[in-house]
């Protein structure tokens, strides 16, 4: 073996552990808040103190027994559910058009479809507020769901388009040649095979809505979503309920991501 090869190998030998240490530090930086939030949520103290003086479930009880928190949670779940449904249907249709279409401007449409991610949410929120005020949709949860659906569509389109690109169109043609209408062919042959992508897209859309604060602030009025309620809680009455809610939310989102990783495609959260 030549000396050069030796040197490269030795270089790799120290590079890999260094990379591991660095990755570990980044991971720690991201996870450290959790290490604080989790214990605090089980605190017995009425103040956000770390380490907690004692442990109890009182802040979980406070959350469960406060109708404002529960209402906000249910509202957020409803909004996320509806937004997911709308985004899934429209985003999938858009993905079909972008992947399969042969019309002029298809590439432009592909770029434009990512706009909701690119436009700052404050700008988007003000614009939607103006529109929804005219339509008298302010303060109504379906209005928020609609606005969230727009934000979620790019996630669906990107994930489903990626799934569709790897799908062999010949299968759809074969189904049609064997007597299926185009709709039947898509429903029986295409959709079942891109189901992992659809599942991933649905989870992403759900999380995008469930976690969204800015749009909900503008459109919610007195009907708060969970992120809005958390925001208000921090602004006004800082108590460990926020920690308990955070833990519950983190658990839910982690669960959804885990499910997406298990049954979905295109989303592989680093574990």
């Amino acid at each position: 073996m030549s000396p050069t090869v030796h040197r490269t190998l030795r270089a790799r030998n120290w590079l890999l552990p260094a990379l591991r240490v660095f990755t570990g530090l980044v991971f720690l930086f991201l996870m450290l808040p959790l290490l604080i939030v989790f214990p605090i949520s089980f605190s017995s103290s009425a103040y956000l103190r770390f380490p907690p003086p004692g442990y109890s479930l009182r802040w979980y009880q406070a959350y469960v027994n406060d109708p404002v928190w529960i209402d906000a949670t249910i509202r957020s779940l409803k909004i996320a559910g509806l937004a997911t449904a709308i985004a899934l249907v429209l985003g999938t249709l858009l993905a079909f058009s972008i992947v399969r279409g042969r019309y002029r401007g298809r590439e432009a449409l592909n770029q434009i479809s990512a706009l909701p991610i690119i436009v700052p949410s404050i700008v988007y929120s003000i614009a939607v507020y103006g529109l929804f005020a005219k339509l008298r949709l302010i303060g109504l949860w379906p209005g928020i769901a609609l606005a969230h659906a727009v934000l979620a569509i790019p996630y669906v389109t990107i994930v489903v388009a990626a799934g569709l690109k790897t799908f062999d169109v010949a299968q759809e043609q074969a189904a049609m040649g064997l007597g299926a209408s185009r709709l039947t062919a898509v429903r029986r042959i295409t959709l079942p095979q891109i189901r992992p992508s659809l599942i991933s897209a649905a989870f992403l859309a759900f999380i995008a809505s469930f976690d969204e604060l800015v749009v909900a602030m503008f459109l919610g009025g007195s009907n708060m979503t969970l992120p809005k309620k958390m925001f208000d809680n921090i602004m006004m009455e800082v108590d460990p309920t926020i920690a308990a809610v955070s833990v519950l939310k983190i658990t839910l989102v982690t669960l959804l991501l885990a499910l997406a990783a298990r049954f979905g495609a295109g989303v592989r959260p680093a574990v």
């Binding site: 062999d168 010949a170 299968q171 043609q173 074969a174 189904a175 042959i189 095979q193």
Partner: peptide, 8 residues
Amino acid sequence: FQNYALFP
């Protein structure tokens, strides 16, 4: 079809 296009 060329690649059979069986439904996997």
